[in-house]
Amino acid sequence: MDELEFRRRIMSDPKERSSEIVDAIKADNANSKFAEDALELDAHIAKAMAVDVPEDLVDRILFNQTSYSEYNVVRPSFARRAMATAASVAFVFGLLVGQVNWGNILVPPAQASIADIAIKHVMDEKPFVGRIDENVPSSQISAKMMPFDHKLGTHFPYHVYYLNHCGFGSENALHMVFQGEKGKVTLFLTSMPTKQAVDFVQQGMAGIVEPMGNASLILVGEEGENVAKIAENIANIIKPMS
């Protein structure tokens, strides 16, 4: 189960603890923290919405209706007070939502650079994908590239440990982890465009963003990895569909 699917299921049901969810929580501290935050928020909401009904509710409603029909005097009815209480509950709920660290739930803001998004994605998923070796064949890589209007023109020259689709900022991306010269390298192919090639070094990692038509190819490896050379090798074998 990838990070996006895990978070979607926890947000829809914070109390779900299927075998897949439990495994994902055990495998990643970030997943465990996310599940705890979701449960805490769910408990706050339940507490805020727990409004006790007065025992004399029926009598008070009947009294208000009678008073209005006999004297045509406008009084604040219990229903109006209940609506006011509900509005207060909604306001409290809004405050609770404001206190949640949504940075762990939402993708980075739209103005974040492609490099920033890539680095955060690699850091967040490193504990999970670091233990996987799917030995992915080139045919499967081409199939995963199809939604981005690209395919492999020949055999992929590196051992691929992991391959999937993922959320990438406001777009989707192909997410691949393969063996570089010094260590594992993460590749993203996304429909988020870029105008020019960009090299970057952040948090002990080196990366490059390469424009590829209306898409972008992003590589992130350990600092010292020659990602520019790897990007050149890969860019030569990735072809547009048409």
Rank of each mutant, 00 (worst) to 15 (best):
N236K: 12
N72W: 13
P193T: 07
C166H: 10
N164A: 07
A112G: 04
E171D: 06
R60G: 02
R131I: 07
N101G: 11
V160R: 00
R81V: 08
F178G: 11
T186K: 03
E55K: 03
R60D: 02
L174W: 01
V198L: 11
V97G: 10
F6G: 03
V198P: 10
I117E: 02
S88I: 06
G221F: 02
V227F: 00
M241K: 03
C166Q: 07
S77G: 14
A48M: 11
D37T: 12
L187Y: 07
N172M: 15
Q140E: 09
M241P: 03
E36Q: 08
G130K: 05
A30I: 15
L187H: 11
I230T: 06
Q203T: 05
D37P: 14
G167N: 06
L95G: 11
A24G: 07
K126N: 11
P54S: 05
N64T: 06
L187G: 08
H44G: 11
V74I: 13
E181M: 08
H150L: 14
S69L: 12
L163E: 02
M241A: 05
D23G: 06
E223W: 01
N64K: 00
K182C: 13
L41V: 09
V89E: 04
S67M: 08
A84Y: 04
V136K: 00
S113R: 07
V177R: 15
M205I: 14
K126V: 11
V201G: 10
L174S: 01
R7M: 15
P240C: 12
A35H: 12
P157C: 09
D59C: 02
I238T: 07
R60S: 02
A235M: 07
D28R: 11
L174D: 03
N233A: 05
I117M: 08
H44W: 12
A118D: 06
A46V: 15
E40Q: 15
P76M: 13
D149G: 14
F200N: 02
P54A: 05
N236S: 13
I230K: 00
F63Q: 04
V22S: 04
C166D: 06
D52T: 14
P193M: 12
M123S: 01
H175V: 05
V53W: 00
E210V: 15
H44N: 14
V53Y: 00
Q196C: 13
A87V: 04
G98H: 01
N135M: 04
Q203M: 09
N64F: 05
V92M: 10
N64W: 01
